[in-house]
Every structure is written in C-alpha cells, then in structure tokens.
C-alpha cells in the first residue's frame, strides 16, 4: 500500500512541475473543495427565493447578481459544482469500470467474444451522443439518474476500446506467458497482472472525460431535460439566463464560466497526467 501511495505522490509531483498541469490541479482542486463544502460556504440558500431582490445585477451583497426569483447566483454556481461532480464522478467511474472489464475480456478472451464486444462498442458509439441522450430522456423522463446512466453508456466504448488494445499488446508479453504457464486463472491474470498496467492510461482518459460529462449534463439541463428545478446546476443557470438574456445576462456568465473553467482544469490535468504516466504517448510536444 505504501508503495502505491508513493507512486501517487510521484505522479502528483510530476504534474505540479508542468505549468499547465499545476493550473489544472489548482482549478480542479478548487472545484472539488468548493463542491465538498458547498453547503457551508454558500452566502445564501441556493434555492431560497427572495422576490424583493429579484433580477439584481452584481453588487457587494450578491457578487453575481440574482435571478428572476431573487435567488443568489453565486450560491447557485457553487452548489451547481456539487451537482456537476455528482453526475460526472459516478458516470466516469462506472463507465471506466464497465469499459475496463469488457475491454480486457475482449482483448484476452476468444475471438468470437472479441468480435461481439467490438460490435457492441461500435454500435453504442454510432449514436451521436446528444441524440442518444435525448432519445433516452424522451423515453424514461429527465432525472439525475437518467443523466448519469446515459453519460455512462456513451463513454463505455472509449474505455473498452483502449483497454482492449492495451490487453492485446500485453497478452503475449513474457510475464503474462509465464503466469499462464504456471496455471494462473484468467481472472487472476487479468485482475492482478494486467490491470495495474492498464489502469494508468484509463485514468488519464477518465480525467479527459470529466469535462465531456460535465458539458453533457449542463447541456441536458439547459434544454430542461437534465436535473429538475429547483436543483441548482450550471446548465439550469444557463437556461434561466437564456430565457431572460436581456434582463439577467449575468446568469449566462455565471453558468458558462464555471463550465469552461472546469473543462480547462480537467483537460490541463489530463494532458499533464498523460505526459507523466505514459511518456510514450507524448508526441512532439
């Protein structure tokens, strides 16, 4: 265990040395901390209405103004970060776990299973993401769980394909052949010997995937097909701001900037992680 911890600190130190990585780390850290402690740091109740103060521009009392129900935008932005991570983290980790398992089986198992799983991945990938999400939401109705499931389903193929390629390149390496000669079971080979060699690349992929998920959740909420009101989400802020874009434009800025910042942060972090975890992937940078 101590071994893996020191490995993590080596990776983090490597990321922090790269200026873009450091920026990414700071942004992601800020979002994570403010999401965890959101309930304590919000200046106002994010869903508390205050009609006399409605549609106010940014001021000392309300740094990002208020919406048409008098709700404080800054509080909703902070709380929205929590909602975004609540969708993104389970979706990304779920997709990674399923994609990893299926991908390793496809890469290590018999040829027919490989073909079948690849067809499954290709089909899942063949729906334009948003169209697929809209079709599912249209059928089962909007909710946080639906969004998580849809997002998960659409990103499984990415992880699956990468895990498969990695498994294919590893399956004939000497240490796996030795393990097989000693009679190790498939589960042992995959879980104990392959997994540690694949997980790094998938972790990088996951960091890069978080922004896509956050944007999709925000997009669905913007269309009124994601998390339900009055739950504060960045997409819902954009929706309210769009409806009254001439009266309360600060809502659009308040909802849009955190999405762009989060995307930047996770992308920088992912790129920098990639360079540290797998220098082979680094191309002419």
């Amino acid at each position: 265990m101590s071994n893996s911890r020191s490995e993590l600190s080596i990776i983090l130190r490597g990321v922090a040395k790269d200026p873009l990585g450091l920026i990414g780390l700071i942004i992601v850290g800020t979002i994570a901390v403010s999401a965890i402690f959101a309930a304590w740091i919000v200046p106002y109740d994010p869903i508390g209405m205050n009609i006399p103060d409605r549609m106010q521009g940014p001021s000392a009392a309300h740094w990002l103004g208020t919406d048409n129900l008098g709700r404080d935008t800054l509080s909703r932005v902070i709380m929205g970060g929590q909602v975004a991570l609540k969708v993104a983290l389970p979706a990304v980790f779920g997709a990674m776990a399923i994609g990893l398992t299926l991908g390793m089986i496809a890469g290590y198992g018999p040829k027919w299973l490989d073909n079948l799983l690849m067809l499954f991945f290709d089909t899942l990938r063949s729906f334009p993401t948003v169209m697929f999400a809209l079709a599912v939401v249209a059928l089962v109705g909007p909710s946080l769980q639906t969004v998580v499931l849809v997002v998960m389903a659409t990103s499984i193929p990415t992880y699956g394909r990468v895990a498969r390629t990695q498994t294919l390149t590893l399956r004939n390496s000497e240490f796996i052949l030795a393990e097989r000669a000693m009679g190790a079971s498939m589960a042992r080979i995959l879980g104990v010997h392959m997994l540690p060699n694949i997980i790094g690349v998938l972790g990088v992929l996951a960091a890069m995937d978080v922004p896509t998920v956050i944007a999709l959740e925000a997009g669905l909420s913007f269309l009124g097909l994601g998390v339900k009101p009055p739950t504060p989400s960045w997409g819902a802020l954009l929706k309210d701001g769009y409806a009254l874009i001439r009266q309360t434009p600060w809502l659009v800025v308040g909802g849009g900037l955190p999405i762009i910042l989060a995307t930047l942060g996770f992308t920088f972090l992912g790129e920098s992680l990639r360079d540290v975890v797998d220098p082979k992937l680094r191309k002419n940078r």
Partner: peptide, 11 residues
Amino acid sequence: VAAPAFVVALL
C-alpha cells in the same frame, strides 16, 4: 478544445 459548443454559443 475545452470550450463546449453550447456554452460558446450562449456567450
């Protein structure tokens, strides 16, 4: 690369 199209569209 990071900027989602619909956020850019709104801004």
